[in-house]
């Protein structure tokens, strides 16, 4: 049986098609790479300076200059390319990424995202997140539906400092798939065994419930 993180990663992987260039954030979004079908030929962008992010090398085969944006050893797949930070972010801001997948502290019904600081508690810095969210053609938030304490993370209005305003397109959680529309957050898919009442109870924003909702797989 898959845990929440695996369920989310597996569903996010289905957003992509052959030829897409995608950036996966640190943490849960990184797991999405495990579910990309080999035939999909999705290329992964690593903001520290290359396209073609590949799996972790075998022990003893790590190279000091081949690391991901979290400083972990990785490989570069055939077809990959290296560049400097200006090119890396030109690819991001210039609309060359089909999508970025990021975690979130809060998301709201206007598509605002907060994921880079909690004033007075946690100030790691935004790194590349603000550029990714502003620049990628599609912004997909992959996260657990509520906080560890069970409080909603999908809100009417974010309370934490924003990473970007009005940029989020989809939210994927272990409970379902939601799309940010001009009218609000529409529920597109529901995980099997989850009721409409349950997902709404765990969501502060009002979910728009269309006539047809697919099963999340």
């Amino acid at each position: 049986m898959m845990n929440s993180r695996e369920i989310i990663a597996k569903r996010v992987a289905k957003f992509f098609k052959a030829g897409d260039l995608v950036n996966l954030g640190i943490g849960m979004p990184t797991i999405v790479a495990n579910y990309l079908p080999a035939e999909a030929k999705v290329m992964l962008h690593s903001e520290n300076g290359f396209i073609g992010l590949g799996p972790t090398p075998a022990e003893g085969e790590e190279e000091k200059d081949v690391v991901n944006a979290g400083a972990a050893p990785v490989t570069i797949v055939p077809g990959g390319a290296c560049f400097d930070s200006a090119m890396s972010f030109a690819l991001i801001r210039g609309g060359h990424l089909a999508a970025t997948v990021l975690g979130a502290l809060e998301v709201d019904e206007k598509g605002n995202l907060a994921n880079w600081m909690v004033p007075g508690k946690m100030v790691p810095g935004m790194g590349g997140a603000m550029d990714l969210v502003a620049g990628a053609r599609k912004v997909i938030i992959a996260m657990e539906h509520t906080t560890k304490e069970g409080n909603p993370k999908i809100l009417k209005s974010c309370s934490l400092p924003l990473t970007a305003a009005n940029e989020v397109d989809y939210i994927v959680t272990e409970l379902g798939v939601m799309e940010i529309t001009p009218e609000g957050i529409a529920l597109r898919e529901l995980a099997s065994g989850v009721t409409l009442e349950e997902i709404q109870a765990k969501t502060e924003a009002n979910l728009i419930i269309p006539d047809k909702i697919d099963i999340m797989e």
């Binding site: 200006a86 890396s88 590349g128 603000m130 550029d131």
Partner: peptide, 13 residues
């Protein structure tokens, strides 16, 4: 001073 990474790169450029 925290600067978005892409903005930092462009300011240096």
């Amino acid at each position: 001073e925290l600067v978005p990474q892409g903005t930092l790169a462009e300011r240096i450029r």
